[in-house]
Write a protein that binds this DNA or RNA. Structure first.
Lengths: 341, 341
DNA sequence: GCTTGTCGGTTAAGCGCTTTGACAGATCAG
DNA sequence: CTGATCTGTCAAAGCGCTTAACCGACAAGC
């Protein structure tokens, strides 16, 4: 292994000077700098990042903390993770993937000094992991929000997203619009914030329109989607449109509606919010989706965190990005008279 | 920050002894050990992993090197990554995600000394990244294979997988079976090994049955799937069954076939190999899939690499795992007379 | 009784880098 | 010409840990 000492010897300077050149920490005479740079490239020297981390007490590693990601096809997560990793790399940081399921384990990891900062995914409305994170004194940013809006976060703007979906459906004449959200088996009463915020936005929108809300909550699976279709058919037969905030149930909802004799979009219009264009295309008919800004969020989260670490920004980031409407074939004019009624 | 020195002082021993207790490196008298452990828990001490890495020249970090992952829904990748991360964690290692697109960048990263070993994803049949990896002298394992079977790898057993798919279809009476594979836009003549190996296995199977092969190559998108349906219809009208090794084109193939008046599975049976159960369920009708052993591969890859690092295993791992057949509704009896002929 | 081990522990030398404080030598004001 | 200021470089002190070398005490072997 070629070390800084080797470079220094070859360039006839002290290792301190080499360090100054590499980091640009202090001005170095052009002629000396040239000698050092020559030595570096001749020896093919790469600075040891571990030693650097120990000496500077900055590892330049960011942790991406997340519960076990679900096995279902989920382009959103991949996009998010990739773009966060990219954003970090471009600023000289690496991203470590840390599946953490229990809080105790998380504290241990954070205390090890391996990471300079952390990004926490799948944040829930009450989240003990956030308390741990705060206690660990490691700078962080949340992906999603807890009940405490003062913490640093980036999140989907559900109000804007739901409003746009509602407007889109209303422009097709739909009057009665239902919402299908997600329930997780593990913690049915402590949902990810996005579910609750989407629901709140929906309720607000319905209240503003002076229409009774219709919320259906199912699991994020094909079976859940079919269950939603049945519930919709039985309990809200006059609904002509559905907004989904349940990526995993999208396909099942279409299948289920069809099985009940309701064709999409003739009898029922569907918008799947917070998902991806690709998922919409997989389904027949192609779903109109509100694509989650996963890539943007990933990059923003990484950037915001690094800004904090480097003192560029000292107020905690509070960033909201709406989803993007991508029309498919699952939204059509409201039927003159609902097929179910 | 509480250091080893603090613990040592409190327990009235030297820091070396503390280290021996923590690592179990040398025997320590029970009474002394108890004092040290008490001090550790009283002070809530966590060893600094960076210092440990520098001193022991082992970081216990593994890199997961991959090109930019595609944005389409891809449960396989997530499963793989998650289970590799878990496998690593259980053995005291962390997994860093490293999107690398250019070789030069990769060499730099590996030379930095941050990682003890690397896992390389999306290996292609000729892969310059593998040469870089070898040159860097960082131990590694490939996910997939190059042309050189002597390198350490874990991979899907495509021969077994394709054979099982063929057998399954033949048990339903299918005689003419086509294969739909994937072409990547970026490097059309240097495919991931899996495509070529699947194709080779298919050709072998057809040769053994004395049937002419029918291979269709399209992009891994919905559009690609529809294109495959058209090609199949026009060029291989007598084919009554298709094996897909192209996750992204699955949905499009079904849509395309239907658009051409061929219903699944009555006129055309489909098996999608090397994908996930969840993806199969999203499609109507539910696809019969050969689920990729992503989770197994992830864990095996991590384990094999760590075994090598720790000298437990010194012969390079060569592991092949077949996909698992999960029946859906896309395979049915061969029609008496092909609808296309 | 003297050697030879063994056990349980300590001392100290790094690991490869960053960073502070000091210090020559050149420059400049008065 | 003297003292003050700047510039460019260096020596050295860590960062917190691992680990080789060593050491004292005590037991066993002959």
């Amino acid at each position: 292994m070629v070390t800084m000492r080797d470079v220094a010897e070859r360039a006839n300077v002290s290792i301190a000077t080499v360090s100054f050149v590499i980091n640009g920490t202090k001005p170095v005479a052009p002629e000396t700098r040239a000698r050092i740079e020559a030595a570096i490239s001749e020896l093919d020297y790469r600075r040891n990042v571990v030693a650097r981390a120990l000496a500077s007490s900055r590892t330049r590693i960011l942790a991406l903390l997340h519960p076990d990601l679900e096995a279902r096809p989920n382009a959103t997560v991949i996009q998010f993770v990739m773009s966060a990793a990219h954003g970090a790399r471009e600023r000289g940081y690496d991203l470590v993937l840390w599946p953490v399921n229990d809080d105790e384990q998380m504290s241990h990891l954070l205390a090890g000094g391996l990471v300079d900062g952390a990004l926490l995914m799948e944040v829930q409305i009450h989240d003990s992991r956030v308390d741990r994170l705060i206690a660990s004194r490691v700078p962080f940013a949340l992906i999603g929000r807890t009940e405490n809006d003062d913490l640093p976060f980036v999140d989907i703007d559900f109000t804007a997203t739901i409003n746009q979906a509602v407007d889109h459906l209303r422009s097709y004449g739909h009057q009665r619009i239902a919402l299908v959200t997600q329930r997780t088996k593990a913690a049915p009463d402590n949902e990810p914030g996005r579910i609750l915020r989407a629901e709140a936005a929906y309720l607000d929108a319905m209240a503003a329109l002076d229409r009774p809300p219709a919320v259906i909550t199912v699991e994020g699976t094909s079976a859940g989607g079919r269950e939603a279709a049945r519930t919709l058919h039985e309990h809200f037969p006059d609904a002509t449109a559905v907004i989904l905030v349940n990526e995993g149930a999208s396909a099942g909802l279409v299948k289920g509606a069809r099985a009940l004799g309701r064709s999409v979009p003739d009898d029922l219009s569907i918008i799947s919010a917070s998902t991806t264009r690709e998922l919409g295309e997989m389904i027949e008919p192609s779903l109109t989706v509100m694509a989650a800004p996963a890539a943007e969020l990933g990059r923003l989260a990484a950037d915001a965190l690094i800004d904090q670490l480097e003192g560029i920004q000292d107020t905690p980031p509070h960033l909201l990005i709406p989803c993007t409407l991508i029309p498919g074939q699952s939204v059509g004019p409201a039927p003159a008279r609902p097929s179910g009624g």
